[in-house]
Design a protein around this nucleic acid. Structure first.
Lengths: 348, 348
DNA sequence: TCTTGGTGTGGTTACGTTCCCACACGAACT
DNA sequence: AGTTCGTGTGGGAACGTAACCACACCAAGA
């Protein structure tokens, strides 16, 4: 087309508007497109001279391979989709950073998407990854439907942080029950008998596990649990602070276990606003260590998660799956660790 | 191919291994692929009945349009590339969140990449976006080369937070000079005469502007600036704390102005470790408000940036540019605001 | 001499979509 | 009556790449 209009003119300069194609550099090097493809992709026979000419031409013309054409032809891409609940939350950000690091080393591209813990957005993301023939998808699942959709279409899926898929797929999680058990046992050992639990009101295995560990610690310590002390919050908790205020006012817990960093932050703010001192008036334990927890005074006792390692593990699991699609689904479980700081003490 | 093997068998069930194509649903609905394309993409004439049949078939078979084929044919995609310096830094995370929100509303996909403030990684990212025919790219530039590469190939680029491109392109920045001026003037008005500046050692306009504001405030207040109080840190500051320690030890500033949230965090840690009290022994001002600054005691006086709005503005600027590629490059400048908290007081 | 096999090359096709074109039909104008 | 127009449809050609195939060459072996 443009070659018909300008038979020989595009010699010295790289064309700006029209991207350079394999055919262009083949013509410039005096070979066929086939040879150019082999030379630049590195598979198949090419003589050293031809390769040198082609590489030089590609370099000179500023050739950028067309990923769409390549993906269309090869019916797969080197993109791995990642969808997390909230990019703005440091936990998910660090998770994504860990994933990207490992994927990059394996020469995959990470495409990061945020659903706002909305099932609809998650499914839209899954469809987008399906549409671009992503090689695999790593997600912190919201509903399980997205994973099913992907698995049904033959895309490798790794769930991370929580497990929701009904379809069989790999997953990496934290030992939530253990972490919560340790934290709760720590509080009970200090002598607390009225420990409140702040937990997200979902079907997520993460929060379920944390609640279970919380209960198990009570059972083992022989402390009866007042159900009113278990406070459930919607994922987008606009009124979390009011709810926490009410909990403090009505049920007077002597300790609070916040099962994620956002709830811990909210609880901390409420305690400060009400003039309650840590740890004298109330003890506070968080789940998921983020920087501020070590900076406030007193510092917050917390169940620390290997967040970046969680991401790296998920990526490694995906790479393994791509390598061997037939291997049975695997569940990796990483251990959290209780970091005791100043926000916990015996009740007054 | 597969149709030759299984002429009529793929009726009731959606094929799992082989993705469904337009041709498949056209056959299922008894039309041509052309009509199917028009029905599902919504442009061109299709009768209501044909559209209904096709939509039903697409739905039943679980059709997912092949983005590669579409991009290849249309020579452009609905992907907007975003590359930020550090996904793990809350500033960039919130920036990305703002960008995504606006892009999503305009029905664009955001593809997020992190270079680690590494020019090489940034250029690799730019090439990736070029390869996938991204409609536009928003970046916090590291070197200017990536933007030039993109602009040369006709991709719309918006620089955000700093301006580095030699090629003409849109940009959204904070009024860094003004923010730094306000912060410094505040310290000087309190009576400080030895104010240290912690700044990143780059060519970035962001830090240059902040330094300029810092100097301007000194000049206007008639306070002579000891050059040893200006401490420059490499982007990846592994020894920032040691450097800050030395600064405190050798030059004994009575106030510190940290020009980003990471340096503020490092400075805060050093001050605590050395047992220096805020604001009695040293005053501290940060640039970029992040949650911990309001939580520590005393809370940190800070130049707050409209971070998410910065992202939204960048996205809007890109959308405008896509709408009207010929319009002259535009530079938007958002105003920061000084939030005075407890970390600043007159020198003792 | 005639295989065989490794090496190098170019032609052709197909990936799945959209766009352009040709065509066909009816209704409403000359 | 012929001509326009709006509507609806299918055929075919691209988009840029990689895979497949055919072929051609030369060396080493039977």
């Amino acid at each position: 087309m443009n070659a018909t209009q300008h038979p020989e003119e595009e010699e010295g300069r790289a064309p700006l508007a029209q991207p350079v194609t394999l055919t262009d550099i083949a013509r410039a090097a005096g070979t066929s497109a086939s040879t150019a493809s082999r030379a630049l992709s590195g598979r198949g026979y090419v003589s050293a001279e031809a390769r040198a000419r082609l590489v030089a031409a590609a370099d000179r013309l500023g050739y950028v391979p067309n990923a769409s054409a390549r993906t269309l032809k090869q019916r797969t891409s080197r993109v791995v989709g990642v969808v997390v609940s909230d990019i703005g939350n440091q936990f998910y950000a660090r998770l994504a950073a860990g994933i990207e690091q490992t994927l990059r080393e394996a020469d995959y591209q990470m495409m990061l998407l945020g659903d706002n813990s909305e099932s609809a957005e998650e499914i839209a993301g899954a469809r987008a990854f399906l549409a671009m023939r992503a090689r695999g998808v790593i997600m912190t699942p919201v509903s399980g439907d997205a994973a099913s959709l992907l698995v049904a279409q033959g895309v490798a899926v790794v769930e991370v942080d929580r497990q929701l898929a009904t379809s069989p797929c790999d997953a990496v999680v934290i030992d939530n029950e253990r972490g919560a058990y340790d934290a709760t046992a720590h509080l009970l050992a200090l002598g607390h008998s009225k420990v409140a639990l702040l937990v997200v009101d979902t079907e997520w295995t993460s929060d379920a596990g944390r609640e279970q560990g919380f209960r198990k610690a009570h059972a083992e310590a022989g402390v009866e649990l007042d159900e009113r002390l278990v406070a459930r919050f919607p994922v987008h908790a606009p009124h979390a602070k009011e709810r926490i205020e009410r909990l403090l006012r009505e049920d007077a817990p002597t300790a609070i276990f916040a099962s994620n960093n956002l709830l811990a932050e909210q609880a901390w703010h409420v305690l400060r606003r009400r003039g309650l001192r840590l740890p004298d008036d109330v003890s506070l334990v968080g789940f998921d260590d983020v920087p501020w927890m070590e900076m406030v005074d007193p510092a917050i006792t917390v169940v620390a998660q290997p967040t970046e390692e969680l991401g790296r593990s998920a990526a490694r699991l995906l790479l393994r799956r791509l390598d061997d699609p037939a291997s049975p689904p695997r569940l990796d479980c990483l251990q959290p660790s209780l970091v005791i700081r100043g926000s916990t003490a015996p009740p007054s």
